[in-house]
C-alpha cells in the first residue's frame, strides 16, 4: 500500500438547526487513496475528520445494519457498500428524501417505523407452542427468502412517490415487504386478520407499481413483487 492520494470533489447537504438558518450544499475536496477503491462511508469519515460538525449515522459498515441510507448522486443507497469508483464527480450526497431532516444526513424516521409497526411485524400463532420447534418444510421456508432479509434502511420507502404523498396512510414498500413476510410464513395463522387490516384504499393500494423500491434496494429485494402477492391475496379474500 502506498500513500498516493487523489482529490475527490464532494457536495454534501448540510443543516444544523442549532446554527443554520437554512440547509445548504457544502463543497469538499478530499484526499482519498489513489491505489485502491474505498467505500463512500470511508470518504465520509475523511470529511468528518476535517469538519467535525458534519453528522450522519453509521454502524456495521458492511451493509447489514441499515444505518447509512442516503441519497447518493440522486439515488438512494447505503454509503458503506457504495464504492467511490462507481460514482461520478462531484459526488452529491443528500439525506434520504421525503423524511424530515434532523441534521445534515440524519433524518427523522419515525413515520417509517410507525408504518412498519402497523403491520404487526411479529409471528402470530394461536396454537400453544410445542415443546420443541414448530416444523416447517424447506419448501415452506424458501418462501421467506427475499423477504426476511430487509434491514429497514428505508432506501425503498424514501424513493417511493406514494410514500412521499401519503406517509401516514400508505404502509410503503418496506412495511409491505414485512407484511408479506408474515403472510407467507407457514407458522403464522393470522392471515385473515392481517389482510383485513390492509384492505383500505391506502395501505396497499396506493402502490402504483413504479418499482423505484426494487431499483434501489441495497439487499436486492423486491417489495413490488411482495405487494403484488398481497394484492392477489386481498382479491381472493374479496371473491
Amino acid at each position: 500500500m502506498s500513500d498516493l492520494t487523489k482529490k475527490v470533489h464532494f457536495k454534501i447537504y448540510r443543516y444544523n438547526p442549532d446554527v443554520d438558518q437554512a440547509p445548504y450544499m457544502k463543497d469538499y475536496h478530499i484526499d482519498v487513496p489513489a491505489d485502491r477503491d474505498i467505500m463512500l462511508l470511508n470518504a465520509l469519515f475523511l470529511i468528518k475528520n476535517e469538519d467535525d460538525g458534519f453528522g450522519y449515522r453509521r454502524s456495521c459498515a458492511e451493509g447489514v445494519c441499515g444505518s447509512d441510507g442516503m441519497n447518493i448522486n440522486g439515488r438512494n443507497g447505503l454509503a458503506c457498500i457504495t464504492p467511490l469508483s462507481s460514482l461520478k464527480e462531484p459526488i452529491v450526497v443528500r439525506p434520504l428524501p421525503g423524511f424530515p431532516v434532523i441534521r445534515d444526513l440524519v433524518v427523522d424516521m419515525d413515520q417509517f417505523y410507525k408504518q412498519y409497526e402497523k403491520i404487526k411485524p411479529y409471528l402470530q400463532n394461536s396454537n400453544p407452542a410445542p415443546a420443541q420447534e414448530r416444523l416447517q418444510s424447506p419448501k415452506a421456508r424458501l418462501k421467506l427468502d427475499g423477504l426476511y432479509e430487509c434491514i429497514l434502511c428505508a432506501c425503498c420507502s424514501s424513493s417511493c412517490p406514494s410514500f412521499w404523498w401519503n406517509p401516514e396512510k400508505f404502509i410503503g414498500p418496506a412495511g409491505l415487504l414485512q407484511a408479506y413476510r408474515f403472510l407467507a410464513d407457514s407458522r403464522d395463522d393470522h392471515t385473515e386478520e392481517r389482510l383485513a387490516e390492509l384492505q383500505d384504499p391506502f395501505s396497499v393500494f396506493r402502490c402504483r407499481g413504479i418499482m423505484n423500491c426494487v431499483d434501489v434496494c441495497p439487499k436486492g429485494l423486491n417489495p413490488t413483487r411482495a405487494i403484488g402477492k398481497i394484492r392477489s391475496l386481498l382479491l381472493q379474500e374479496a371473491l
Binding site: Y122, L123, A129, E133, A140, R187, D188
Partner: peptide
Amino acid sequence: VYELEHMGLPFSRLDNGKI
C-alpha cells in the same frame, strides 16, 4: 433456541422440517 423459533426466527430447515 426453541423459544426463538416460536417467536418466529426464520431458521433454515432440514428435510424433516426441523431447524
